[in-house]
């Protein structure tokens, strides 16, 4: 049974067609990379999965629950879906610890003590435990993004979504964040990653999905996609990033 089932989803913003008739499914423990030129609709598709965008047409199913139907289902489903944004979106008026325990205590109704110990565990895994009382504006970009990942993981989700998680980071910090994401993938998390980082795609992905102008053009394993892409547009894209 797939963790995510996307059926014929279409989403437009006014006259701009962002996502056109996309069908995709993601299995448990899979790491799926979505890539493509700017404006291809990758982020929009990702945001449809956790309900930040509602498709005009089509259905999205997460963990056997249709989130494009009843709004109550969406709220339930969000407990199982973690998302990491390009601009971190940490809550600036709370320190790191509180950012991490807000979700678990208010949504999953975990006791505060349990939430704190889970938060500590996550921060230690990322090497950020000494920042536990710091405020977001005291963190570097790389540290903030890792805290954002920890915040999403603190909810114990079944699925993690990454929306260009490293695009806003300085180059020297990107590796730290990608290492965390790779580690997560190795531990068996189901992940959907929108990214331009092709090195990460080659190393960690089970499947690459290539989108242009809102449609899926090609889907293949990373070996096949990067070595022998079928579609001319994929070939063009891969040629542009050759050497990475």
């Amino acid at each position: 049974m797939s963790v995510v089932e996307i059926k014929n989803v279409t989403k437009s913003f006014g006259s701009l067609q962002a996502v056109v008739d996309v069908t995709l499914s993601v299995e448990k423990k899979e790491t799926v990379i979505i890539c493509g030129p700017s404006g291809a609709g990758k982020s929009t598709l990702l945001r449809c999965i956790n309900g930040l965008e509602r498709p005009r047409q089509g259905e999205v199913w997460v963990d056997n629950v249709e989130i494009t139907g009843d709004k109550a289902n969406l709220r339930e489903a969000r407990k199982e879906i973690g998302i990491v944004f390009q601009s971190f979106n940490l809550f600036p008026h709370m320190n790191v610890l509180n950012n991490l325990i807000l979700g678990p205590t208010k949504v999953r109704r975990v006791t505060k003590a349990d939430a704190i110990s889970k938060a500590r565990e996550l921060l230690e895994r990322m090497g950020l435990i000494e920042k536990i009382d710091a405020y977001p504006d005291e963190l570097s970009g790389g540290q903030a993004q890792r805290v954002a990942i920890a915040r999403a993981l603190a909810m114990d989700p079944k699925l993690m979504l990454f929306d260009e998680a490293t695009s806003a980071l300085d180059p020297e910090m990107i590796k730290d964040v990608l290492d965390v994401m790779a580690d997560l993938s190795n531990r068996g998390m189901t992940m959907i990653v929108v990214t331009h980082e092709m090195g990460f795609a080659k190393a960690a992905a089970n499947r690459v999905v290539f989108m242009v102008d809102g449609r899926i053009v090609e889907e293949a394993s990373p070996e096949v996609f990067f070595q022998s892409p079928q579609d001319p547009r994929s070939q063009h894209f891969v040629n542009q990033i050759i050497g990475i």
């Binding site: 930040l52 969000r78 407990k79 979106n89 809550f91 807000l102 208010k106 949504v107 915040r151 909810m155």
Partner: peptide
């Protein structure tokens, strides 16, 4: 807007989002 998105993504209700994330800021 992204603060709202981050809060909803965690599964917080409108009320909790306002109370813990938006109004304090």
């Amino acid at each position: 807007r992204t603060q709202f998105e981050a809060a909803y993504a965690l599964g917080l209700t409108f009320f909790d989002t306002m109370r813990y994330v938006i109004l304090p800021q």
